[in-house]
Design a protein around this nucleic acid. Structure first.
Lengths: 214, 214, 214, 214
DNA sequence: TATGAATGAGAATTCATTCAT
DNA sequence: CATGAATGAATTCTCATTCAT
């Protein structure tokens, strides 16, 4: 690992590097915690996953976790955030791309489907956010609404530009989002379809009915 | 209540009535427990709902619950069962009705959508069955697979009889089921669409793309 | 059984018989409770045996037990009593028989050994009387002391009449009682020695050292 | 406390001391728990002794106990172990000593008698091992059988070398063990015989009958 | 930064006992 | 007599979190 190597010779190069180094090491450890945590959360549920288990898998002790996170909730919130970023990234990318509403919608579908193929993405729909404190929940839900708004926006856009047939926007968005979110519940790492295949298929299937291809 | 009335004159009508009466009273109470429990489970999550809360809402004490259920898990399992029955009922009904695959699929969609509008139905998709013991989980999942198999069967049937365009059956079934299950997450009792409206809309929307209407 | 016969024709013979009958039936049931209870107490320990289990084995319900016993403790106390009576019977019998101290001691040993071969006898030494309320415990211990006093009396008697060699009476009594009480811990219903064989062997073995056979 | 003193100057003496120190402190605390626990177990019985009581006497809180023991059963098992070691020590010592069977038997008797004068030894015979899980019970019973086997071995040895008169080995061993185990039930800390006196007396009394002194 | 220890809060479950029927 | 239901009290155990070191 380059991390451990650089840790051996910090003073030689620059007195600032150690800080950099340390911060980076810290971030790496934070990430490791999150990866292990989200994995266990998905495997056993949030409430049934004790911080002890998380710590054990990382070969540290429970209180050590508190160096990186204020509490258990913060861990979950960050897992949500990382998942959220995945879909938001797709949303942003499609917003910035040229193309009609249908094209953008399909892009978002693909992006959201791929999100659901990852642990952090899955936790968005498989870990109930009712375990969060009201404030944290509000924030998380705001994030989720963003994506939903994205679906609706692209659908409306498509209807406006003629690429999508008129339909009940809200319900259609819910239907699409639901079909995609469900992926997180049935997808298997070693399934016979790759995440990309699933994403592509969904992008078509979920828009067939509304696409104005006639 | 008729119960208390009949209790006053048991010997006159029938020596069996008291028993019947008691059994019925028992069932009524069991049901009340389940209704309160599923409500709280949906509101706060299973792990965060203590039996104390359930009991309190019923104006009884916690140990009294153990007269009706062996343990907390059994309560959840029965909630799942009641939810499961809702969709299975729709499945059975459509199986017995005449009509092509598309027709049946739409019926099942409607039925499953309506299931998702009820507490017992929602708990199927909103309470993580990973809290169950392996045996109980196996049983619950078997039930869920039944519904999924129903979707696939009707789609296959439709493809065979020409009412549905050839498509990836498994993925399509997942997409439809996902869109419907998601209803349980967003529907609101006082929303501007009635469950029936949602069900009808979904029955159309989710089949538009695959219906062979040309 | 004559019990069931007489129960069928109670009014014919005498208006008083039913009472007798009822009392007897009651006693029979009490005994049944005690037999089942002591068995379970020995099998699982007093605290770990719930009245439910006792009731179940008798095909009745828990509250029904309260018709025969005031509480769980009373059941145990009566089990002790029945065991106590076994040894006390032997003590009384030997007291009334002619013979020197050694003869009587051996008789008591035999009697106490046989007591330890029965459930009620075993409970004397295998169920800790510390589970009893102070009053009940006092009574039970008084009974146990009676037996112990019997051992000492016979030993002293034997020393006085020359059939037993001078020895530390108290310690010798404890040693003999201990050896006998231990039988309750190792004896097995289907062992290769009958209770009588064990009793006889003990009567000899435990007195060999102190018998004045020279 | 010396602990706090050494804690002030750890680096001077050795970098390992703190660790040693901690481990030792931990062991000391574990031992304290066991001593309090066995005392209460003997006083009130295992089931009637709550971990709360144990903790209270130690001026800690109940969950703190779980730092040292996995559960209540483990505490009991360790109490048994400590008691077991006492007698096993005597057994081993006598095995290694020169002398005939009678000599060794007497040594084991003395050792076992002294075991019964201590809390940990008493719990072997006064706490019913039926409260243990099957696995734990098996282990504990294996230990008990070891001692019993020791008694039998020394008796057989004595018969073989002529120091003990031929007798029913199994029954004799049971009788001796029983007499000794009973000590745990009647001995009193402030009795008029010291444990050593009792032990010596028992070593003689229990072998008088079988010793080949003629 | 990391750890062992400790704690407060809480949860499920068990059970002897009571009571109305 | 017997029962179903209910309860209060207790108990074991878990866990997130804190703190001194």
């Amino acid at each position: 690992m380059t991390r451990s190597k650089s840790r051996k010779v910090p003073d030689i190069t620059s007195p600032w590097e150690p800080f950099e180094d340390r911060r980076r090491a810290r971030d790496i450890k934070r990430e490791a915690v999150l990866r292990v945590a989200v994995h266990l959360f998905l495997e056993q549920g949030y409430d049934r996953t004790s911080l002890n288990e998380v710590a054990e898998r990382l070969n540290i002790t429970k209180p050590a976790l508190y160096n990186y996170f204020a509490n258990k909730e913060e861990i979950l919130v960050e897992c949500y955030s990382l998942g959220q970023e995945l879909s938001e990234g797709a949303l942003t990318r499609m917003r910035e791309q040229d193309g009609d509403g249908l094209f953008r919608l399909r892009g978002l579908i693909r992006g959201h489907a791929l999100t659901m193929a990852q642990d952090f993405g899955q936790c968005l729909v498989r870990i109930d956010d009712r375990v969060l404190s009201p404030e944290a929940r509000r924030e998380v839900r705001a994030g989720k609404r963003l994506i939903d708004a994205g679906f609706r926006a692209f659908i409306s856009e498509g209807i406006a530009d003629g690429s999508i047939r008129p339909c009940d926007v809200k319900l259609t968005a819910f239907a699409i989002a639901g079909a995609l979110n469900w992926i997180g519940h049935w997808i298997q790492p070693d399934g016979d379809r790759s995440p990309e295949q699933i994403a592509d298929e969904m992008a078509l299937r979920l828009t067939e009915g509304i696409a104005n291809t006639a």
